[in-house]
């Protein structure tokens, strides 16, 4: 049973913003509801107005724009994303990461926009978006704007979104090179669990290896210092150094899921594994 609130389905971007501004602190955007409704159920949140974004045109579409990469409507359910041929072939790491979110049922509702707007440090799609250097296309009181994913997360539960502003689409720029991505997520159970630590690695044909971490800092983070170590060296020693650097850059907390110390250790272990697997995958793909 949920406690009463009003539900409104926004028919346009403008209406959504308008509703949100009018509701003020009592308003909440709704996409898949897999986070929002849980919080309402647990009595952590008691909004007055819930503004459904799914009726807005384009919110659930996946479009490939020539030369511009892929544009994903923010309310697109993760399962649709995972099953999309273009996403799978060009942004395999995102598909893989999205696939680790919750259960089949959850992914049929949970959206990409909801996943990042939640701004959980453990949001599973975030490391992949960081590595693809996604652009967050928002809509707000002063119209549309673009936020680089690296600037989107501001802290646990906090984003760069302003009042009345919502994520409209997520743009994934074209990757010109061949690449191979790996997402390693350490949970407690093997299915339907939040990450204790997660690591994404994306190896590019040109020699770059991109690395991002989840659940080990106030926000998901890209660890460029660790990446730099791998710029010209990919031997065992370099991988070890990069993993150690990732660990240094992590700033996890202790909570009910794991201690800070364990998270640090696992950051190092998983980073090394992710790099190895990404490099091996890229090599296999090149063959």
């Amino acid at each position: 049973m949920l406690l009463p609130f009003d539900y409104v389905r926004a028919r346009s971007r403008e209406e959504a913003v308008d509703l949100a501004l009018r509701a003020g602190a009592g308003g909440r955007f709704l996409a898949g509801g897999t986070d929002l409704l849980v919080r309402i159920h647990d009595r952590q949140l008691r909004p007055k107005v819930v503004i459904d974004l799914k009726g807005i045109e384009g919110m659930q579409a996946i479009n490939s724009c020539d030369g511009e990469g892929l544009v994903v409507g923010a309310a697109t359910p993760l399962n649709r994303l995972i099953r999309d041929e273009l996403v799978r072939s060009r942004y395999g790491l995102l598909a893989e990461a999205a696939h680790t979110v919750g259960s089949v049922q959850i992914r049929n509702r949970a959206s990409l926009g909801g996943n990042i707007s939640n701004a959980s440090p453990a949001a599973d799609t975030a490391p992949a978006l960081l590595l693809y250097e996604a652009e967050i296309l928002t809509w707000g009181p002063s119209g549309g704007r673009k936020i680089l994913i690296g600037e989107f997360f501001k802290g646990p539960g906090a984003t760069a979104l302003g009042e009345g502003e919502f994520v409209f689409k997520v743009r994934l720029p074209i990757l010109k090179e061949r690449s191979f991505g790996v997402y390693l997520k350490l949970g407690r159970t093997r299915a339907v669990d939040l990450a204790i630590v997660s690591v994404a690695a994306l190896a590019l044909e040109g020699g770059e290896v991109r690395l991002a971490l989840g659940a080990v800092a106030p926000t998901p983070i890209r660890v460029r210092e660790a990446e730099a170590i791998l710029r010209n060296r990919k031997d065992k020693e370099a991988i070890k150094e990069a993993a150690a650097a990732a660990r240094r850059l992590a700033a996890p907390i202790s909570d009910i899921r794991a201690s800070r110390e364990y998270r640090l250790e696992m950051t190092e272990v998983l980073t090394a594994r992710a790099i190895e697997q990404a490099l091996a995958g890229l090599a296999a793909r090149a063959r």
Binding site: G32, G33, V38
Partner: peptide, 27 residues
């Protein structure tokens, strides 16, 4: 559970399984 964790409330909406505890009737 009422929180999307247990799946006991699973029904199909337009052919896809979802947690009926995490969807509003109006949706």
């Amino acid at each position: 559970c009422g929180g999307g964790e247990c799946g006991a409330c699973t029904v199909l909406v337009n052919g896809e399984p979802i947690n009926a505890c995490l969807m509003l009737a109006v949706e």
